[in-house]
Design a protein around this nucleic acid. Structure first.
Lengths: 142, 142
DNA sequence: GTCTGTGCAAATTGTTTGCAACTTA
DNA sequence: TAAGTTGCAAACAATTTGCACAGAC
Protein backbone atom coordinates (compact mmCIF):
# COMPACT_ATOMS: atom_id res chain seq x y z
CA UNK A 1 0.00 0.00 0.00
CA UNK A 2 1.21 3.50 -0.78
CA UNK A 3 2.46 5.58 2.05
CA UNK A 4 -0.14 8.30 1.54
CA UNK A 5 -2.93 5.90 2.43
CA UNK A 6 -1.17 4.79 5.55
CA UNK A 7 -0.40 8.35 6.54
CA UNK A 8 -4.02 9.29 5.96
CA UNK A 9 -5.20 6.61 8.35
CA UNK A 10 -2.86 7.94 11.02
CA UNK A 11 -3.92 11.53 10.41
CA UNK A 12 -7.58 10.63 10.69
CA UNK A 13 -6.96 8.95 14.01
CA UNK A 14 -4.91 11.87 15.28
CA UNK A 15 -7.61 14.35 14.42
CA UNK A 16 -10.38 12.19 15.76
CA UNK A 17 -8.52 11.94 19.07
CA UNK A 18 -7.69 15.63 19.24
CA UNK A 19 -3.98 14.96 19.06
CA UNK A 20 -1.37 16.88 17.09
CA UNK A 21 0.68 16.04 14.07
CA UNK A 22 4.42 15.68 14.40
CA UNK A 23 7.31 15.13 12.07
CA UNK A 24 8.77 12.46 14.34
CA UNK A 25 5.72 10.25 14.16
CA UNK A 26 5.67 10.59 10.41
CA UNK A 27 9.32 9.64 10.16
CA UNK A 28 8.87 6.58 12.36
CA UNK A 29 5.88 5.51 10.31
CA UNK A 30 7.69 5.99 7.02
CA UNK A 31 10.73 4.08 8.23
CA UNK A 32 8.60 1.17 9.32
CA UNK A 33 6.74 1.27 6.04
CA UNK A 34 9.92 1.32 3.97
CA UNK A 35 11.41 -1.66 5.71
CA UNK A 36 10.87 -5.07 4.23
CA UNK A 37 11.48 -6.76 7.54
CA UNK A 38 9.60 -6.79 10.78
CA UNK A 39 11.58 -4.28 12.80
CA UNK A 40 12.07 -4.14 16.54
CA UNK A 41 11.84 -0.81 18.33
CA UNK A 42 15.60 -0.87 18.77
CA UNK A 43 16.26 -1.50 15.08
CA UNK A 44 13.84 1.19 14.08
CA UNK A 45 15.46 3.56 16.52
CA UNK A 46 18.85 2.91 14.92
CA UNK A 47 17.50 4.15 11.62
CA UNK A 48 16.16 7.41 12.99
CA UNK A 49 18.27 8.16 16.01
CA UNK A 50 19.76 11.32 14.57
CA UNK A 51 16.38 12.96 14.81
CA UNK A 52 14.32 10.95 17.26
CA UNK A 53 14.68 9.51 20.76
CA UNK A 54 13.90 5.92 21.69
CA UNK A 55 10.98 6.90 23.90
CA UNK A 56 9.29 8.58 20.97
CA UNK A 57 9.85 5.50 18.86
CA UNK A 58 8.08 3.39 21.47
CA UNK A 59 5.31 5.92 21.87
CA UNK A 60 4.78 6.06 18.14
CA UNK A 61 4.70 2.31 17.73
CA UNK A 62 2.18 2.00 20.52
CA UNK A 63 0.06 4.63 18.87
CA UNK A 64 0.21 2.88 15.49
CA UNK A 65 -0.80 -0.37 17.12
CA UNK A 66 -3.65 1.30 18.94
CA UNK A 67 -5.12 2.77 15.80
CA UNK A 68 -4.87 -0.45 13.84
CA UNK A 69 -2.01 0.58 11.59
CA UNK A 70 0.43 -1.97 12.81
CA UNK A 71 0.76 -5.29 14.56
CA UNK A 72 3.02 -6.38 17.33
CA UNK A 73 4.67 -9.68 16.57
CA UNK A 74 6.07 -12.02 19.17
CA UNK A 75 8.20 -15.01 18.25
CA UNK A 76 8.97 -17.00 21.35
CA UNK A 77 10.32 -14.61 23.89
CA UNK A 78 12.18 -12.45 21.47
CA UNK A 79 11.87 -8.70 21.42
CA UNK A 80 8.61 -7.43 20.04
CA UNK A 81 8.66 -6.65 16.34
CA UNK A 82 6.31 -4.50 14.34
CA UNK A 83 4.72 -4.78 10.94
CA UNK A 84 2.30 -2.54 9.13
CA UNK A 85 -0.93 -4.48 9.06
CA UNK A 86 -3.30 -1.92 7.61
CA UNK A 87 -4.72 -3.24 4.35
CA UNK A 88 -3.10 -6.63 4.78
CA UNK A 89 -4.92 -9.90 5.27
CA UNK A 90 -4.15 -12.02 8.28
CA UNK A 91 -1.28 -14.38 7.69
CA UNK A 92 0.73 -16.92 9.59
CA UNK A 93 4.49 -17.36 9.72
CA UNK A 94 7.06 -19.95 8.86
CA UNK A 95 10.14 -19.12 10.89
CA UNK A 96 13.61 -20.48 10.17
CA UNK A 97 15.38 -21.48 13.35
CA UNK A 98 18.79 -21.16 11.72
CA UNK A 99 18.79 -17.84 9.90
CA UNK A 100 15.78 -16.25 11.58
CA UNK A 101 14.05 -15.56 8.29
CA UNK A 102 10.28 -15.73 8.27
CA UNK A 103 7.87 -16.41 5.44
CA UNK A 104 4.30 -15.22 5.44
CA UNK A 105 1.70 -17.81 4.54
CA UNK A 106 -2.03 -17.91 4.18
CA UNK A 107 -4.12 -21.05 4.23
CA UNK A 108 -7.87 -21.00 4.18
CA UNK A 109 -8.26 -24.62 5.17
CA UNK A 110 -6.52 -23.99 8.46
CA UNK A 111 -8.72 -21.02 9.15
CA UNK A 112 -11.78 -23.14 8.55
CA UNK A 113 -10.63 -25.81 10.95
CA UNK A 114 -9.74 -23.23 13.53
CA UNK A 115 -13.30 -22.00 13.41
CA UNK A 116 -14.50 -25.56 13.84
CA UNK A 117 -12.27 -26.15 16.82
CA UNK A 118 -13.55 -22.98 18.41
CA UNK A 119 -17.14 -23.96 17.78
CA UNK A 120 -16.62 -27.40 19.28
CA UNK A 121 -15.48 -25.71 22.47
CA UNK A 122 -18.23 -23.09 22.45
CA UNK A 123 -15.58 -20.50 22.06
CA UNK A 124 -16.24 -17.21 20.33
CA UNK A 125 -13.17 -16.89 18.13
CA UNK A 126 -11.67 -13.45 17.77
CA UNK A 127 -8.19 -13.94 16.41
CA UNK A 128 -5.43 -16.44 16.18
CA UNK A 129 -1.75 -16.82 15.77
CA UNK A 130 0.08 -19.68 14.20
CA UNK A 131 3.82 -20.03 13.85
CA UNK A 132 5.60 -22.91 12.20
CA UNK A 133 9.22 -23.33 13.21
CA UNK A 134 11.75 -25.21 11.15
CA UNK A 135 14.61 -24.90 8.70
CA UNK A 136 14.23 -23.01 5.45
CA UNK A 137 15.26 -24.28 2.05
CA UNK A 138 18.61 -22.47 1.93
CA UNK A 139 19.63 -23.43 5.44
CA UNK A 140 18.88 -27.08 4.73
CA UNK A 141 21.61 -27.09 2.10
CA UNK A 142 24.33 -26.14 4.51
CA UNK B 1 1.63 -38.77 35.00
CA UNK B 2 2.75 -39.72 38.50
CA UNK B 3 5.36 -37.59 40.11
CA UNK B 4 7.82 -40.46 40.48
CA UNK B 5 8.10 -40.76 36.72
CA UNK B 6 8.74 -37.08 36.33
CA UNK B 7 11.25 -37.06 39.13
CA UNK B 8 13.00 -40.02 37.57
CA UNK B 9 13.43 -38.18 34.32
CA UNK B 10 15.00 -35.27 36.16
CA UNK B 11 17.28 -37.55 38.18
CA UNK B 12 18.46 -39.29 35.04
CA UNK B 13 19.34 -36.00 33.46
CA UNK B 14 21.09 -34.79 36.58
CA UNK B 15 23.23 -37.89 36.77
CA UNK B 16 23.95 -37.94 33.08
CA UNK B 17 25.17 -34.35 33.31
CA UNK B 18 27.22 -34.92 36.44
CA UNK B 19 25.08 -32.54 38.44
CA UNK B 20 23.86 -32.97 42.00
CA UNK B 21 20.46 -33.58 43.51
CA UNK B 22 18.88 -30.91 45.64
CA UNK B 23 15.75 -30.58 47.71
CA UNK B 24 14.98 -27.17 46.22
CA UNK B 25 14.80 -28.47 42.68
CA UNK B 26 12.56 -31.28 43.79
CA UNK B 27 10.23 -28.89 45.57
CA UNK B 28 10.00 -26.60 42.56
CA UNK B 29 9.27 -29.55 40.32
CA UNK B 30 6.63 -30.93 42.64
CA UNK B 31 4.94 -27.57 42.97
CA UNK B 32 4.77 -27.15 39.22
CA UNK B 33 3.50 -30.68 38.87
CA UNK B 34 0.78 -30.20 41.49
CA UNK B 35 -0.54 -27.08 39.91
CA UNK B 36 -3.37 -27.35 37.45
CA UNK B 37 -2.52 -24.05 35.86
CA UNK B 38 0.40 -22.89 33.83
CA UNK B 39 2.41 -21.04 36.44
CA UNK B 40 4.75 -18.12 35.95
CA UNK B 41 8.08 -18.09 37.75
CA UNK B 42 6.71 -15.42 40.07
CA UNK B 43 3.61 -17.43 40.94
CA UNK B 44 5.64 -20.53 41.53
CA UNK B 45 8.03 -18.56 43.70
CA UNK B 46 5.11 -17.37 45.82
CA UNK B 47 4.28 -20.98 46.64
CA UNK B 48 7.77 -21.89 47.76
CA UNK B 49 9.33 -18.68 48.96
CA UNK B 50 9.67 -19.81 52.53
CA UNK B 51 12.31 -22.27 51.44
CA UNK B 52 13.56 -21.16 48.06
CA UNK B 53 14.79 -17.96 46.43
CA UNK B 54 13.55 -16.62 43.14
CA UNK B 55 16.88 -17.18 41.40
CA UNK B 56 16.70 -20.86 42.19
CA UNK B 57 13.17 -21.00 40.86
CA UNK B 58 14.34 -19.53 37.56
CA UNK B 59 17.37 -21.80 37.46
CA UNK B 60 15.22 -24.84 38.10
CA UNK B 61 12.67 -23.93 35.47
CA UNK B 62 15.40 -23.41 32.92
CA UNK B 63 16.86 -26.76 33.81
CA UNK B 64 13.50 -28.51 33.46
CA UNK B 65 13.00 -26.92 30.09
CA UNK B 66 16.46 -27.92 28.96
CA UNK B 67 15.93 -31.56 29.83
CA UNK B 68 12.55 -31.75 28.16
CA UNK B 69 10.48 -31.92 31.31
CA UNK B 70 8.65 -28.70 30.78
CA UNK B 71 7.64 -26.15 28.20
CA UNK B 72 7.83 -22.41 28.25
CA UNK B 73 4.58 -20.85 27.13
CA UNK B 74 4.29 -17.38 25.74
CA UNK B 75 0.93 -15.71 25.23
CA UNK B 76 1.40 -12.38 23.60
CA UNK B 77 4.02 -10.55 25.55
CA UNK B 78 2.91 -11.77 28.89
CA UNK B 79 5.27 -13.28 31.41
CA UNK B 80 6.56 -16.69 30.49
CA UNK B 81 4.57 -19.54 31.97
CA UNK B 82 5.58 -23.13 32.46
CA UNK B 83 3.85 -26.45 32.05
CA UNK B 84 5.08 -29.97 32.49
CA UNK B 85 5.24 -31.40 29.00
CA UNK B 86 6.88 -34.74 29.64
CA UNK B 87 4.56 -37.51 28.58
CA UNK B 88 2.07 -35.11 27.09
CA UNK B 89 1.23 -34.85 23.40
CA UNK B 90 1.62 -31.53 21.69
CA UNK B 91 -1.46 -29.39 22.00
CA UNK B 92 -2.65 -25.95 21.03
CA UNK B 93 -4.48 -23.40 23.12
CA UNK B 94 -7.77 -21.62 23.14
CA UNK B 95 -7.30 -18.52 25.25
CA UNK B 96 -10.14 -16.47 26.69
CA UNK B 97 -9.46 -12.77 26.36
CA UNK B 98 -11.82 -11.94 29.20
CA UNK B 99 -10.95 -14.29 32.03
CA UNK B 100 -7.55 -15.45 30.82
CA UNK B 101 -8.51 -19.10 30.97
CA UNK B 102 -6.97 -21.39 28.40
CA UNK B 103 -8.20 -24.69 27.03
CA UNK B 104 -5.90 -27.29 25.56
CA UNK B 105 -6.95 -28.70 22.22
CA UNK B 106 -5.58 -31.22 19.80
CA UNK B 107 -6.55 -31.47 16.18
CA UNK B 108 -4.88 -33.84 13.79
CA UNK B 109 -6.30 -32.20 10.69
CA UNK B 110 -4.55 -28.99 11.50
CA UNK B 111 -1.29 -30.79 12.04
CA UNK B 112 -1.64 -32.42 8.65
CA UNK B 113 -2.22 -29.14 6.90
CA UNK B 114 0.66 -27.56 8.74
CA UNK B 115 2.91 -30.24 7.32
CA UNK B 116 1.53 -29.54 3.87
CA UNK B 117 2.13 -25.83 4.20
CA UNK B 118 5.69 -26.48 5.26
CA UNK B 119 6.25 -28.85 2.37
CA UNK B 120 4.89 -26.34 -0.12
CA UNK B 121 7.50 -23.90 1.07
CA UNK B 122 10.31 -26.43 1.16
CA UNK B 123 10.49 -25.89 4.85
CA UNK B 124 11.69 -28.61 7.21
CA UNK B 125 9.10 -28.39 9.95
CA UNK B 126 10.34 -28.82 13.51
CA UNK B 127 7.60 -27.49 15.74
CA UNK B 128 4.68 -25.16 15.79
CA UNK B 129 2.56 -23.08 18.02
CA UNK B 130 -1.04 -22.16 17.51
CA UNK B 131 -3.13 -20.00 19.78
CA UNK B 132 -6.77 -19.18 19.25
CA UNK B 133 -7.99 -16.08 21.05
CA UNK B 134 -11.59 -15.43 21.84
CA UNK B 135 -14.25 -15.50 24.51
CA UNK B 136 -15.06 -18.68 26.42
CA UNK B 137 -18.51 -20.07 27.00
CA UNK B 138 -18.93 -18.68 30.51
CA UNK B 139 -17.69 -15.22 29.63
CA UNK B 140 -20.08 -15.04 26.70
CA UNK B 141 -23.01 -15.26 29.09
CA UNK B 142 -22.06 -12.14 30.97
C1' DG C 1 -0.89 31.20 24.67
C1' DT C 2 -2.37 26.77 25.59
C1' DC C 3 -1.87 22.17 25.32
C1' DT C 4 0.45 18.22 23.19
C1' DG C 5 4.81 15.91 21.83
C1' DT C 6 9.68 15.12 22.63
C1' DG C 7 14.10 13.92 24.79
C1' DC C 8 16.48 12.70 28.54
C1' DA C 9 17.19 10.18 32.51
C1' DA C 10 15.16 7.61 36.02
C1' DA C 11 11.85 3.95 37.14
C1' DT C 12 9.88 -0.61 36.27
C1' DT C 13 9.45 -5.47 35.18
C1' DG C 14 11.10 -9.97 34.24
C1' DT C 15 15.13 -12.52 34.22
C1' DT C 16 20.10 -13.63 34.73
C1' DT C 17 24.57 -13.51 37.02
C1' DG C 18 28.67 -12.92 40.42
C1' DC C 19 30.01 -14.27 44.63
C1' DA C 20 30.41 -16.06 49.34
C1' DA C 21 28.33 -19.56 52.08
C1' DC C 22 26.30 -24.06 52.06
C1' DT C 23 25.38 -29.04 50.34
C1' DT C 24 26.14 -33.11 48.15
C1' DA C 25 28.77 -37.08 46.91
C1' DT D 1 37.32 -32.17 50.34
C1' DA D 2 36.14 -30.87 45.83
C1' DA D 3 32.55 -29.51 42.95
C1' DG D 4 27.92 -28.14 42.25
C1' DT D 5 23.89 -25.36 44.35
C1' DT D 6 21.79 -21.60 46.73
C1' DG D 7 20.47 -16.89 48.21
C1' DC D 8 21.20 -12.39 47.98
C1' DA D 9 21.98 -8.32 45.67
C1' DA D 10 23.59 -6.29 41.70
C1' DA D 11 23.34 -6.37 36.67
C1' DC D 12 20.61 -6.54 32.56
C1' DA D 13 17.39 -5.81 28.67
C1' DA D 14 13.14 -4.07 27.03
C1' DT D 15 9.87 -0.81 27.83
C1' DT D 16 7.47 3.00 30.22
C1' DT D 17 7.19 7.33 32.69
C1' DG D 18 8.07 12.11 34.96
C1' DC D 19 9.41 16.38 33.89
C1' DA D 20 11.20 20.54 31.70
C1' DC D 21 11.39 22.33 27.24
C1' DA D 22 10.10 22.66 22.29
C1' DG D 23 6.57 22.69 18.80
C1' DA D 24 1.67 22.64 16.92
C1' DC D 25 -2.53 25.02 16.31
Amino acid sequence: MEFVKIKEKLDNYIEQEGMRHSSQREEVLRTLWQSEKHLSAEELYNEVKENIGIATVYRSLNLFTECGLCNEIYFNNETTRYEISYGKKHHDHLICKKCGKYIEVRNDKIEKIQKQVARNNNFLLKSHKMDLYGVCEECQKE
